[in-house]
């Protein structure tokens, strides 16, 4: 006896219809959006690759120094980048860096407001949490199929896939950070006649910034972990090299790509963490 009604057919058919409908009726809108994203990416990518490697290494070292105030950290970051160049992966690394930068900026643009909304409305948070869970667990290929249909193969769907996967921790930590802000401080701000916007920008965001920075750090790490999948749908960069090693059964090439990703990850992670720790400083004095 068959106890299962057939719902697979209807779900699949409805989804396909929806995607077809979007492609046909809103194709232009998607293309316009896709173009904006693409232009941003190309702009950053061209900038990064136009810089001579020594200048880039100096800049990253300076950023590391500014974020951590530790000279050793700057030397380490410079050495890591130099090593990537020595591996012959400079161009790919810059392409990947561009995708990461654009994805993370996009995540911040979308994630911060959503996190703020979630913190201020319990209803909204209740609805949002399962969506975030879904975004982190559903295999990327499932949404890559419609994304590729809507945006075509290439960099834009790669960025979108990265954003979908990397966004949730930023929203969660923004929400958490804002809700953790001492209620009496917010109350005091209200008592003196602050508007919602003044409370948000003057109290809630600054006080939750260390937690939000943690979210940005995690989002960046997750974005890096998506580079191989992103290159499967046509993004250029380090992921491509790993993919190449896989396709040609060439462990050496694969390893070179892998090492490059790890170095990028370590450098970015240390820089953002050090910055987050510095934001924490006068907070710990208060406890």
């Amino acid at each position: 006896m068959n106890i299962f009604p057939d719902i697979r057919g209807p779900i699949a058919a409805a989804t396909n219809d929806l995607v077809d409908f979007l492609v046909v009726d809103y194709g232009d809108a998607f293309e316009a959006f896709s173009n904006v994203l693409l232009q941003a990416l190309l702009f950053i990518e061209r900038g990064l690759r136009a810089l001579p490697p020594w200048a880039m290494i100096l800049i990253i070292a300076a950023v590391a120094l500014a974020a951590s105030r530790k000279p050793l950290m700057a030397v380490g970051a410079a050495a890591g980048l130099w090593f990537i160049g020595a591996l012959g992966m400079w161009d790919q690394a810059m392409q990947t860096l561009a995708i990461i930068l654009v994805s993370v900026c996009f995540c911040i643009l979308v994630g911060l407001p959503l996190g703020v909304l979630a913190a201020s409305s319990r209803m909204f948070r209740r609805g949002l949490i399962p969506v975030l869970d879904l975004m982190q667990t559903i295999p990327s290929f499932v949404y890559l199929i419609p994304a590729a249909m809507l945006f075509g193969l290439g960099k834009v769907p790669a960025i979108l896939a990265t954003v979908i996967y990397a966004l949730p921790p930023l929203i969660r930590l923004t929400d958490l950070g804002i809700r953790e802000v001492d209620g009496e401080v917010v109350e005091a701000s209200r008592a003196f006649g602050a508007t919602r916007a003044q409370i948000l920008t003057g109290v809630q965001i600054p006080l939750s910034l260390p937690t939000i920075m943690q979210g940005i750090n995690q989002t960046t790490m997750l974005a890096l972990s998506m580079v191989v999948i992103a290159s499967m749908i046509g993004a250029r960069g380090v992921g491509e090299t790993v993919l190449l090693g896989l396709q040609r059964n060439d462990s050496g090439t694969g390893l070179v790509g892998g090492i490059t990703i790890v170095i990028l990850a370590v450098v970015i992670d240390r820089i953002t963490q050090a910055y987050g720790r510095r934001l924490q400083r006068h907070r710990s004095a208060e406890a």
């Binding site: 001492d182 009496e184 401080v185 109350e187 005091a188 701000s189 209200r190 008592a191 003196f192 006649g193 602050a194 508007t195 003057g202 109290v203 600054p206 006080l207 006068h282 907070r283 208060e286």
Partner: peptide, 29 residues
């Protein structure tokens, strides 16, 4: 908001100071 700004100030039991701002900025809040 106008009432709170112009007419009523409050001192809080647990202070309610902004920890990320200096004493002077807090007093001028």
């Amino acid at each position: 908001i106008a009432l709170r700004r112009r007419r009523i100030a409050m001192v809080f039991q647990r202070f309610g100071l902004l920890p990320h701002r200096r004493v002077l900025e807090n007093a001028a809040y």
